[in-house]
């Protein structure tokens, strides 16, 4: 009797869960959006190179979300507001990365994945994209957004490479994005050398955003309060099944690129400020440009 009751209970529960699931799938067709975010040193500060020249001094420097990634978060939130769905931010790095995750939460992101593992330290660009592909594939996705590049190392690699690894189409340097009503296609306007190009791709797809696509919102006070309570899902190499398997290590273990050293650009030699009345100064400038610098 008791068993029967329990069976019925669980069976009913399962049906309810199934309806719940169907509801999401069939009626709202929720769009699942991933946004790749990276933490970078504040672009306004002076940078110092470490004694061994291998990296910059990280002590006491202010960190921010990569500005291009902030546009990506904003774009994701705009899509969610129009079409429903959820926005998950994903970032790789040490503990401090939680700061940009919290600020994305405060803007309105729903979920977050923090890829944190000493095995992820100083991965090369391919390996980083590979690990991201593993993490994103676990939960499925319709749209992946990222900045067109990070302002620190400026590789401009992760977005397009990730799309290739996931075998989904991607559009680079986008300035406009529109998702079709059936949520099966997206039309993006992207920057090309001659101007702008309008491209349509089937979803799922990845879009790398260019500056100018939107103006990121400021976090609201309730948003900031809520952000403190939201859970950050921490994922390590083991959880992705890439920790020890030799086959995976072959793929992402050895770094394909290595920074030998960082150095300061050669300083420009001090120029001259031209003195005199406007006419004299302008005549001298044109003369110097023609005959000394020989650039006009």
């Amino acid at each position: 009797m008791g068993d029967n009751f329990l069976d019925n209970f669980w069976c009913g529960f399962a049906v309810l869960k199934l309806f719940d699931h169907m509801h999401i799938r069939c009626y709202t067709l929720a769009v699942k959006i991933f946004v790749l975010i990276k933490q970078v040193p504040d672009t306004a500060i002076a940078l110092e190179i470490k004694a061994d020249a291998a990296d910059i001094m990280y002590q006491d420097i202010p960190w921010v979300i990569n500005p291009y990634d902030e546009y990506a978060v904003e774009e994701a939130l705009c899509i969610k507001e129009k079409l429903g769905g959820s926005v998950t931010v994903i970032s790789m790095g040490p503990d401090r990365v939680a700061d940009i995750i919290r600020s994305s939460f405060a803007m309105g992101a729903d979920e977050a994945v923090h890829l944190k593992d000493t095995a992820f330290n100083s991965l090369d660009a391919y390996s980083t994209a590979f690990i991201l592909s593993k993490a994103i594939s676990i939960s499925g996705y319709d749209i992946i957004l990222c900045g067109k590049q990070a302002v620190d190392d400026g590789w401009g690699y992760i977005g397009p490479a990730l799309a290739e690894i996931l075998s989904v189409p991607s559009v680079s340097s986008i300035l406009k994005l529109k998702i079709s009503e059936d949520k099966k296609h997206a039309t993006a306007t992207r920057e090309i050398d001659e101007g702008l190009e309008v491209v349509e791709v089937p979803l799922p797809a990845l879009f790398a955003v260019q500056q100018g696509i939107n103006k990121p919102r400021y976090a609201s006070l309730p948003g900031i309060m809520k952000a403190k309570k939201k859970e950050i899902k921490i994922v390590d190499a083991g959880a992705l099944g890439v920790a020890s398997a030799a086959t995976d290590l072959r793929v992402w273990g050895a770094s394909r690129t290595n920074v030998k050293k960082l150095f300061y650009p050669p300083e420009r030699k001090k120029g001259k400020v031209l003195e005199g009345d406007s006419m004299t100064v302008i005549k001298e400038l044109i003369n110097l440009l023609r005959n000394e610098a020989k650039v006009i």
């Binding site: 940078l47 302002v151 620190d152 770094s255 960082l262 300061y264 650009p265």
Partner: peptide, 14 residues
């Protein structure tokens, strides 16, 4: 250039 040209980086590939 890295950090938007504020520093330069020497890179080797393998």
């Amino acid at each position: 250039p890295v950090y938007g040209g504020r520093l330069l980086s020497a890179v080797v590939c393998r």
